[in-house]
Write a protein that binds this DNA or RNA. Structure first.
Lengths: 246, 246
DNA sequence: CGCAAGCTTGATGCTCGTCAAGGGGCGTGG
DNA sequence: CCACGCCCCTTGACGAGCATCAAGCTTGCG
């Protein structure tokens, strides 16, 4: 299931345990990840513990309730974070994008499962190792805690969304929030890539695939968006924002 | 809005800044609050920064988006944590009970507003003071972080609930989870007090007040629960659990 | 005793879920 | 290169579940 593409020895003296040839210093997501609070020497310390790990579309990074042996920084690609109900109903808690940290809470078990929506690159740490480093670096813990606070905010917004909004509002809000996330990562555009399928959106928004499809079609017919292969172009941001505001 | 009942000087040499006469050492919620990880000397340090604060039913402890001047331990009573949509729709994110900490993320602004559902006693700290103490006590930060992880889990369960469950499942799950929270605080009983009104439950579960009322009536008629003034008696736990499992 | 607030119950309708069928793109194999 | 099949998406018809609208009821309190 897990594919460790670590290639120790491929570039002899720059490589430790399979991590990137150039190291954390020029990691694509360094400035938007938890690592952004670290000094260069701290970065090296962490680098020594890191492995790169890549996944293909559909592969699982970890499963719900599984012991959390590792924690991850997402470098490239997108993952789906899901929870299952005993009867098989599925809910998509969210999507992880580059710069996101999986295992933020450093808990013993993963509360969700994580599956790659396409090719994914991650930076992996043994949880115990990472936790040990955190113990010695309160500012790193502080950074994790701030991110956890941010996650809690997002979770609350999502609850509001799920509990109190109509199908159309849900879809409009989702598109805008995806756009905002890409923007924060430096990818600012009215064309929003949708790495997930309709079923994933539906399971994220508490709708059915048919309803998501219908709402997207409706927004398209109303020229608020334009459906394009693999994504969506947001044509009428004010209107979408008005819908999302509720 | 805020009522500081601090009574400095009432019991001259045991009282600092209006906190409880007997101090943290015999605080009712010490063992279930974040304070449980503190040593006695640390407790005293924190105690010097604390004020007691009581609220009457309906009073607000703080408002959504308000600068978070203070953080709080709930000692007695229950509060409703709400978020508003621009159009006035309301969602109840949750309920705070004794032992809960409000302002866990130590963020600059409160993400929810908190209102007393009945008489409430809290232990209040200036956020800056509290944050300064946290800086010097990594294990306290660690404890806050663990609680944040727990909150995140609860938030995820709530999302699952809101997105994927029927009205009946929502109500059954809510009753059981309240019971579990009281049990953790030492109040184990099949009779569950409901300090919140029907409207609050509805806004928490993404339903209307009428639907909540109907579902409670239905469960009552089915002898799964017994509606009593101010609460509910859970008569048929297995059946409720079967419903909640979904 | 009477009023107000919160709760319950009933009748009706809308939104969204369910069921069903049909397209379109892409990879595989002839 | 085209044909076939598969998967994902879209569209339509219908129905269920819950919201909405509208009364009554209970409880507590002046």
């Amino acid at each position: 299931m897990l594919v460790d593409t670590g290639s120790c020895g491929r570039i002899p003296h720059a490589c430790h345990h399979g991590r990137s040839e150039n190291g954390c210093a020029d990691c694509k997501v360094r400035l938007i990840s938890v690592c952004s609070v670290l000094e260069l020497d701290e970065l090296e310390e962490l680098e020594a513990l890191s492995h790169h790990l890549t996944l293909d579309k559909g592969q699982a990074l970890f499963g719900q309730d599984e012991p959390a042996g590792f924690v991850f920084n997402v470098i490239e690609g997108a993952l789906r974070l899901t929870r299952l109900l005993p009867d098989g109903r599925r809910h998509v808690m969210g999507f992880a994008l580059p710069g996101d940290f999986l295992g933020l809470a450093l808990q013993e078990r993963h509360s969700v499962s994580a599956e790659a929506l396409g090719p994914v690159k991650t930076c992996r740490f043994a949880r115990q190792d990472f936790a040990a480093v955190v113990e010695t670096k309160p500012h790193l813990l502080r950074s994790l805690h701030e991110r956890a606070g941010h996650e809690l905010n997002l979770a609350q917004e999502q609850m509001l969304l799920l509990g109190r909004r109509t199908a159309e509002e849900k879809v409009a809000t989702f598109l805008l929030s995806l756009r905002a996330r890409y923007a924060r990562a430096g990818h600012s555009s009215v064309t929003v890539e949708l790495p997930m399928g309709r079923q994933d959106m539906a399971d994220h928004l508490g709708l059915t695939i048919e309803t998501v499809s219908r709402m997207l079609s409706r927004l398209d017919r109303a020229h608020a968006i334009l459906l394009v292969p693999g994504g969506v172009r947001l044509l009428d941001l004010p209107r979408l924002e008005a819908m999302a505001a509720g």
